[in-house]
């Protein structure tokens, strides 16, 4: 959503709040705010390249937000969302579900302030390319020294490389410390850049650091990857059992006298295929990946 859309949405929301206050229809307001919060959190997740909320499996907005927070914390040891926001969201979502959206004016205003708190949590565009100029523009003299002088001996290069790596690690830790106190999207992007540069430098054997890839590549999505692989495994089982079932069915249709002996195999194949479909349906259906 671009800035213009955000402004229009806010204006419309203001109008709706005024009207709902007039008509005392707080339920409508609560539902709208809950959807807006869910959409916003989904947007954050997708921008980070993580899966969207699994609505089909009944994953709550809180559970999903908590999962996102954990992913970011695991990767960068930073505090992305404050515990207060998470607790507030958990509380209000529980009330919302229990009362089926019938919230009081106070609760609705709490929900509204929660929405604006979540809106403040901007994530950098992780799909953008790593800026190669970042190395030169943002790193101080000692780093420039590494790049300036050509034809260095191997030992000289190694010692300077380890010095540079040490400085980078210091810088990274400094940023991490800041981020652990308070989330800042710009610092977060900087941390991602540093991490990428450090990794490239560690791998590089020459004086050049090859900068490529995207910020998103810094993330490791262990949870979603394992879940995806499990889903693919089940899909594979479904395909194989149905393939076998179809071949038995074809054989029986050509030679009807084989029905007695092949019926069992056919039934087993389709049965196993059906069972795996059921497992897939209950665990992964509706956008689990």
């Amino acid at each position: 959503m671009n800035n213009m859309d955000e402004v229009v949405l806010e204006e419309k929301l203001k109008e709706l709040i005024q009207i709902c206050k007039k008509s005392y229809n707080y339920k409508k307001l609560a539902v709208i705010l809950m959807i807006l919060i869910s959409n916003k959190i989904n947007e954050i997740g997708l921008k980070l390249g993580i899966r969207a909320r699994n609505k089909g499996n009944g994953e709550s907005v809180y559970d999903y937000f908590h999962f996102l927070n954990q992913q970011i914390t695991n990767n960068f040891e930073l505090k992305f969302v404050s515990n207060i926001i998470l607790r507030q969201l958990k509380k209000i979502e529980l009330i919302f579900i229990r009362k089926r959206g019938e919230l009081s004016l106070n609760q609705v205003s709490e929900l509204l302030s929660l929405y604006f708190d979540i809106k403040k949590l901007e994530v950098p565009n992780l799909y953008s390319k790593i800026d190669a100029n970042y190395v030169r523009n943002n790193l101080n003299e000692s780093y420039n020294f590494y790049f300036r002088k050509n034809n260095k001996s191997n030992s000289e290069l190694t010692s300077q490389k380890s010095l540079l790596l040490m400085k980078l690690a210091e810088n990274e830790n400094h940023i991490k410390n800041k981020l652990s106190k308070r989330y800042n999207p710009l610092l977060f992007e900087k941390a991602l850049n540093l991490k990428q540069i450090k990794e490239k430098l560690e791998k590089s054997n020459s004086q050049k650091i090859q900068i490529s890839g995207r910020l998103k590549d810094n993330f490791s999505y262990q949870h979603s990857n394992t879940k995806n692989m499990l889903m693919f495994f089940i899909i594979g089982c479904i395909i194989i059992f149905f393939t076998l079932g179809v071949s038995f069915l074809f054989e029986m249709s050509i030679n009807p006298f084989l029905i007695n002996s092949l019926g069992f195999f056919g039934l087993m194949s389709f049965g196993a295929g059906g069972l795996f479909i059921l497992i897939y349906w209950t665990n992964f259906h509706s956008g689990g990946a």
Binding site: M229, F232, F233, G236
Partner: peptide, 10 residues
């Protein structure tokens, strides 16, 4: 087929 499918699809 069953063992290679997840890795290949991924």
């Amino acid at each position: 087929f069953i063992c290679t499918f997840p890795y290949i699809l991924n």
